[in-house]
Amino acid sequence: MTLTGSLPAVRWPGRLAAAWGILFAIPSFVWATGTTFGADSTVSPTLVQLARDGVPWFIAVLVVTGLLKLFGAVIGLGLLKPRSRWAGRTLVFCGGGAAILLLWHGGLFVVQGVAVRAGLLTVPSEMNPLVGWYLYLWGPWFILGGLAFAATVALHVRGSADRPLRLFGLAGALGALVLSVAATAFGIA
């Protein structure tokens, strides 16, 4: 097993990424049980109703997203130590992708929230009370997670002797960007 090299002693971004993933997974699992604590005033009423009604496909989405968030925590922790070439490259690819997905998603919430507040966009009346939550809570929360993953990947790559490692981070980031732009263009995001 060839390790990718020594890493810098700065560990807080990886720990922050891991904590972000764990903390953000909790609501997904709680809401999958049909308990909508914390969601009633902060999340789209349509989504809250799907959780309350126990709609099977939506419960599956909540569980899968909760598991993905926990996987993100593993990625954040995994990037704290040197790894074999294959494992290090896989972690950097996934971490780069996570950074862009989270930054894009949070950025959309913030930009859309600012546009609604400025009167440039309108939303259905039932969504008006939620604009502030998406602008001031959810958007910045996603951006925080994205920045934590970006910093973790950057530190891992910087401290590595594996030169092509940067390409794996770039590939993950570009893949996530293409996926995010396509989802937004098709109205999925």
Results as ranks from 00 to 15, higher is better:
185 A>V: 15
55 V>I: 15
174 L>I: 11
52 R>K: 14
42 T>M: 02
23 L>N: 08
80 L>R: 05
94 C>D: 00
174 L>Y: 04
83 R>D: 00
114 V>M: 12
164 P>I: 10
39 A>V: 07
76 G>Y: 04
187 G>H: 15
186 F>Q: 15
70 L>W: 01
24 F>A: 15
141 W>I: 03
150 A>H: 08
181 V>M: 12
70 L>S: 01
66 G>V: 06
137 L>S: 12
108 L>C: 09
122 T>C: 04
99 A>Q: 00
38 G>C: 00
41 S>H: 03
144 L>V: 10
142 F>P: 05
140 P>G: 07
78 G>E: 11
103 L>V: 06
39 A>Y: 00
159 G>L: 04
69 K>I: 05
37 F>T: 11
185 A>E: 07
66 G>P: 03
29 F>M: 04
125 S>W: 12
83 R>N: 04
24 F>I: 09
50 L>N: 11
9 A>W: 03
185 A>Q: 10
9 A>R: 11
60 A>E: 01
48 V>M: 06
127 M>E: 13
17 A>V: 11
22 I>Q: 06
116 V>T: 14
59 I>Q: 08
29 F>C: 00
110 V>T: 07
182 A>K: 09
183 A>G: 11
135 L>Y: 04
173 A>I: 03
98 A>P: 00
23 L>I: 14
60 A>M: 07
31 W>R: 02
11 R>H: 08
97 G>V: 07
156 H>L: 06
57 W>F: 13
111 V>R: 14
116 V>C: 12
182 A>I: 15
147 L>W: 11
33 T>A: 01
27 P>Q: 00
165 L>R: 05
78 G>D: 12
29 F>S: 06
134 Y>V: 00
27 P>L: 01
132 G>T: 07
22 I>L: 13
134 Y>S: 03
72 G>C: 01
143 I>M: 02
180 S>E: 02
55 V>S: 14
21 G>K: 01
116 V>G: 11
140 P>V: 04
168 F>T: 12
106 G>Q: 03
167 L>H: 09
189 A>Q: 14
170 L>C: 13
54 G>D: 13
45 P>R: 02
105 H>G: 03
75 I>R: 04
54 G>S: 08
49 Q>R: 09
88 G>A: 08
156 H>S: 09
96 G>L: 10
47 L>R: 11
112 Q>G: 10
104 W>E: 03
68 L>H: 04
149 F>Y: 15
72 G>W: 00
35 T>V: 04
15 R>K: 09
47 L>N: 10
68 L>R: 06
138 W>R: 14
28 S>R: 06
163 R>Q: 08
89 R>N: 14
64 V>M: 15
26 I>F: 01
166 R>T: 12
118 A>M: 11
138 W>G: 13
28 S>H: 10
26 I>V: 15
168 F>S: 13
113 G>Q: 02
28 S>L: 01
169 G>M: 10
188 I>W: 12
76 G>V: 05
168 F>Q: 09
104 W>K: 06
142 F>H: 12
11 R>K: 11
188 I>L: 15
188 I>F: 13
118 A>R: 06
63 V>C: 09
133 W>A: 05
15 R>N: 13
103 L>Q: 04
75 I>K: 02
170 L>T: 14
123 V>D: 08
153 V>D: 00
120 L>S: 06
114 V>I: 15
117 R>C: 15
108 L>Q: 09
13 P>D: 02
85 R>K: 09
46 T>H: 10
152 T>F: 02
